[in-house]
């Protein structure tokens, strides 16, 4: 049995890693490293779930770790990378509204706001340790940082990644704050996979050059059609 104190230390370190990946996603211009960074973030998430499992012994967390690893660290990044090769876009240079530096500063401010808001909403209970609270703050901040990516990037594909890291934030928040029934967690993952598939396929239409996107899109439409049917 591992000491709870050590596990808590590990959890805190992992949470910091999550924030670092989020900061990288906000600031980088290279699309390929964006995807691998997202993959890394998901792996960190799976590790977090495992660490929490070691701490709480709730079997749901184990299931979450497995699902997260499979869907978000392998399937979705692979899918996005394939699409990326197809549309031949390597960099997303343009930023709306916010430059990377200012969005980093803003995200720090957001974390502070989330921290203050949560101290008021989540009443302090002695049984739940402070790392739970820390996790909740990081989760919500990650979600808001993901939203900033969606707002500030121009390419639809980068927006998809922003949405995905938003969703990772929700997962962290959910993991730390409460335990949802397994079936719900599972359905949500399915839901999100479909969402990502569809959005990415549509993205092909937007991000690629106009000439042959009709044809391409068409091919993916059919592919999507087979996946959609129950």
């Amino acid at each position: 049995m591992i000491e709870p104190a050590i596990i808590q230390g590990v959890i805190k370190i992992l949470l910091v890693c999550v924030i670092i990946t989020a900061a990288y996603i906000i600031s980088t211009r290279n699309l390929i490293s964006l995807v691998s960074m997202y993959s890394l973030q998901s792996v960190t998430l799976a590790c977090l779930a495992l660490a929490l499992y070691a701490h709480d012994q709730a079997p749901v967390l184990l299931a979450i770790a497995v699902i997260t690893f499979l869907s978000k660290a392998l399937i979705i990044p692979y899918f996005i990378a394939t699409i990326q090769e197809k549309i031949r876009i390597k960099r997303d240079i343009e930023f709306h509204f916010l430059s990377p530096t200012s969005s980093l500063v803003l995200s720090m401010a957001l974390m502070l706001v989330v921290y203050m808001a949560l101290t008021r909403i989540l009443p302090a209970t002695p049984s739940r340790e402070n790392f739970v609270f820390f996790g909740a703050v990081i989760g919500l901040s990650l979600m808001l940082m993901g939203m900033m990516v969606m707002l500030s990037r121009k390419r639809a594909l980068t927006k998809v990644l922003g949405f995905l890291s938003m969703e990772n934030g929700v997962l962290i928040f959910g993991m730390f704050v409460t335990e949802l029934p397994f079936i719900i967690e599972f359905l949500i993952v399915i839901d999100l996979i479909i969402l990502v598939l569809l959005t990415t396929i549509l993205t092909v239409g937007i991000d690629s050059t106009l000439e042959d996107y009709h044809k391409r899109l068409h091919r993916f439409h059919l592919l999507q059609g087979e996946e959609e049917r129950p």
Partner: peptide, 19 residues
């Protein structure tokens, strides 16, 4: 795409609310 992005990003907030 605009529809999906706006609706699903906001729905994630909803999910936090449900939590």
């Amino acid at each position: 795409i605009k529809y999906i992005f706006i609706a699903s990003a906001s729905m994630l907030f909803s999910f936090v609310g449900l939590i």
